[in-house]
């Protein structure tokens, strides 16, 4: 007879939780298609063993040093084809049409339909094949990609997970440039970008003598009973897995994911233990009579 369902709000957190970010996965998948499996494996080994000494983003290029078999590390650069200024104008126009793109990006997430934005302008954000990724290595190996490049390529996935805007940078626009351009689009004709007067410093907080010895506030009622998190959901569920951090231990993808999950499971147990211990500490710790420990507020029934 009643009409509404309460439980339609089941949040699908698994998407956030258990897998790699989709855009990182897509980047790495590209690598997996590489035909020369042996070289691929050697490159991954390099990544795992810490041979990649540095990765820097310089303008639209990735610059990296990789320790090879010689004493001096090899210098690697890696880049994608840049979009023209005109293309970017179009892309930014499209991005500005839906605020969700910026919102997700600024919350550290690549919108799942980002490729639609580029497709609408006849472009692709992600390289379609390995060949689209331009690279150069100072090693003697003629093959491209060589194992050094593969090692760098592999580790780039983590950097993208960290900052989805980096992919845009490889295509020719930095995060700041994009943000700035989008702001202007949004403000449109109403734009009012007059500089804001810089406000005074954080105000001085003198010590008040009248209340120097006064604290008559009773304990906040909501702190009387200390209770576990709502629906047993903690920040761990919101943040999901800690991204792979095996910068110098880049084992197989499967193994990396397993590590992240182990860490997550461990932390979950720690959070649960800390929560229980804190609750019992709040009840007075030594308090043994269970009757005293509970402070339920059941309705006052006629006794």
């Amino acid at each position: 007879m009643l009409f509404f369902l309460l439980n339609s709000m089941i949040y699908n957190l698994s998407e956030v939780n258990s897998e790699r970010e989709w855009w990182v996965q897509q980047w790495l998948d590209l690598l997996d298609k590489y035909r020369f499996k042996k070289r691929l494996e050697r490159g991954r080994n390099y990544a795992r063993k810490g041979n990649v000494l540095s990765i820097d983003f310089k303008d639209q290029k990735v610059l990296s040093d990789v320790q090879g078999t010689e004493d001096e590390p090899y210098h690697i650069s890696l880049w994608l084809d840049n979009f023209s200024n005109e293309d970017w104008e179009f892309v930014i126009n499209t991005l500005s049409e839906q605020v969700i793109f910026s919102a997700k990006l600024l919350a550290g997430e690549m919108p799942t339909n980002i490729e639609d934005v580029f497709a609408a302008n006849g472009l692709r954000l992600f390289p379609f094949s390995l060949q689209e990724i331009r690279s150069r290595c100072s090693c003697p190996d003629k093959a491209n990609p060589c194992k050094h490049i593969i090692a760098v390529y592999h580790l780039l996935g983590d950097r993208f997970a960290e900052d989805p805007f980096l992919l845009f940078q490889l295509r020719g626009r930095t995060k700041e440039q994009i943000i700035e351009a989008l702001r202007e689009r949004r403000a449109g004709d109403n734009a009012d970008s007059a500089p804001v007067e810089v406000s005074q410093k954080a105000e001085e907080k003198p010590i008040k003598i009248e209340t120097f010895w006064k604290y008559e506030t009773p304990l906040d009622s909501s702190l009387v009973v200390v209770s576990p998190p709502m629906q047993n959901e903690t920040v761990l569920d919101i943040l999901g897995l800690i991204p792979s951090s095996n910068g110098n231990g880049g084992t197989s993808l499967a193994k990396q994911a397993a590590t992240s999950e182990q860490v997550r499971d461990y932390l979950k147990q720690v959070y649960a233990t800390v929560s229980q211990n804190a609750i019992s500490a709040a009840m007075g710790g030594s308090l043994t009579d269970s009757e005293g420990a509970s402070t339920d507020r059941t309705e006052f029934e006629v006794l």
């Binding site: 604290y215 702190l223 200390v226 576990p228 998190p229 709502m230 903690t234 959070y271 929560s275 500490a281």
Partner: peptide, 20 residues
């Protein structure tokens, strides 16, 4: 008053811990 204040804040930290 000072000590009472910190005892209340300390209780808040227990609440933070309990709620993860």
């Amino acid at each position: 008053a000072d000590l009472q204040f910190w005892s209340h804040v300390a209780r808040w930290t227990l609440d933070l811990l309990a709620r993860g």
